[in-house]
Each structure stands twice: as C-alpha cells, then as structure tokens.
C-alpha cells in the first residue's frame, strides 16, 4: 500500500467518530465535502439530512454521482447564503488545514450550526516532530504531500487547536484523537495522527 492509499483509508477513520456524535435525523452541513461519502455515510447510519459544500467541479460531480446534495461554493467567501442556527451540525472534515481564513470559517460554522465538528491531521505527532528535528518537512499518511505541492496552508497541533478554542470562547463538547484509526488514550498530541472535535459557542 502506498502512502497515498493509506492516507485515503485513514482519512475515512474519522467518519465513525463523527457519525457517533450526530444525533439521528439531524440536519448536517459538510464544508469541503469532497466526493460526499461522509454525508452519504451519515444519511445511511444516522438518517441525517445533509448538504455538502465544495468549490471543485470534480467534487460537485462526484457528489451528484453519489446521490448527495452539494452546493458549489467557495468556503473562503463564508457561508453568507446560510441563516444563523439553520443546521444542527456543521462539519469540516480534514479541510481546516487547507483553509486560508481559518478564524472566519470556524466562527461561521458556529453561526450557521448549533454545533460544529472538525477533524484535522495532528501536526504534533511524534514522527512529524522527528522529521522536523531531522531537518525536513514532514510527510505522513495524513499529510502525504511534499512542501511544494501541498494544498495545506495552516498546519497545527492538537495543543494549538485547544488554545484557539480557549481564546475564541469555544466550548469543546467532545474530542477524540486517533492513531491510524484507533483511539489514543494518553498523550494525544504526541501519539494522535488525526483529531476530531465537537464544539459549540460558550454561553
């Protein structure tokens, strides 16, 4: 198995964690929905009513092929077409690191959704730290790109995200760190390859 294929598979490992946090019959908005398979999974397992948002023509087509609702739109321009509190949950799966206007998107998620879920590759995992210590930009199944062709612009660690939430009055409801698909019990920022957070505005 190549790093790229492994990345795709481990990329799906957050689906179960996300689905377990979606209440049955919820309305869900999936930002950067890609081929729409997460939405399809949530529709099948949670009877969710979902819409995806994606900018890429190929992803819009893939969603239509997968029978998933998709709205072609640029996330970087915000969620202006969506009313406040109009979704039970807004999801951003493995896309946050590729978004330019990180703060705006996270706050928009909490405007439109009563709750939000993000998953992201943890840049604090030990093997990535090691690669940097050895003087190279890290490559892993979750971050399979070279420095010159990566779509990622904001790489961050679990600790970074936690402090972001603290500073932005975001209350973390649940969190899980996965190491190649399996939950990490201790030292999440050291052993976790992927982190999944469910959060809301602090009241």
């Amino acid at each position: 198995m190549t790093g790229q294929e492994e990345g795709v598979l481990s990329g799906r490992s957050d689906f179960q964690a996300i689905a377990s946090w979606i209440r049955p019959d919820s309305t869900v908005l999936d930002l950067g929905c890609g081929d729409g398979l997460l939405l399809k999974y949530l529709e099948q397992t949670r009877n969710a009513r979902g819409y995806g948002i994606d900018i890429a023509d190929a992803n819009v087509l893939a969603c239509v092929k997968n029978g998933v609702n998709v709205i072609q739109s640029d996330l970087e321009r915000g969620l202006a077409g969506f009313d406040a509190g109009s979704f039970d949950c807004v999801i951003l799966s493995q896309t946050l690191q590729a978004v330019r206007r990180t703060e705006e998107i996270l706050l928009e998620m909490l405007r439109v959704g009563r709750e939000a879920i993000v998953s992201f590759p943890n840049f604090g995992r030990w093997d990535l730290r090691l690669q940097i210590a050895l003087g190279r930009m890290p490559i892993s199944p979750e971050l399979p790109y070279e420095w010159y062709n990566t779509p990622n612009v904001h790489l961050f660690t679990i600790a970074d995200f936690e402090s972001f939430c603290e500073e932005h009055h975001i209350r973390v409801i649940e969190r899980v760190a996965l190491n190649r698909g399996r939950p990490v019990r201790t030292f999440a920022n050291f052993f976790g390859s992927l982190a999944v957070y469910r959060f809301e505005k602090r009241h």
Binding site: Y51, D57, V70, G81
Partner: peptide, 21 residues
C-alpha cells in the same frame, strides 16, 4: 440562481447546485 438555492435550502428540499465556469 443562488436565491433559488437558498429558498430550497430553507425548505430542506434536496438540492444540488453547480456554477459552471
């Protein structure tokens, strides 16, 4: 077209929207 999409979303209709370049 997005006005239409917005109205359909408000009604939770199944809708897909593509903006062809």
């Amino acid at each position: 077209a997005r006005e239409i999409v917005k109205a359909l979303l408000d009604n939770r209709c199944d809708v897909s929207y593509a903006e062809i370049d």
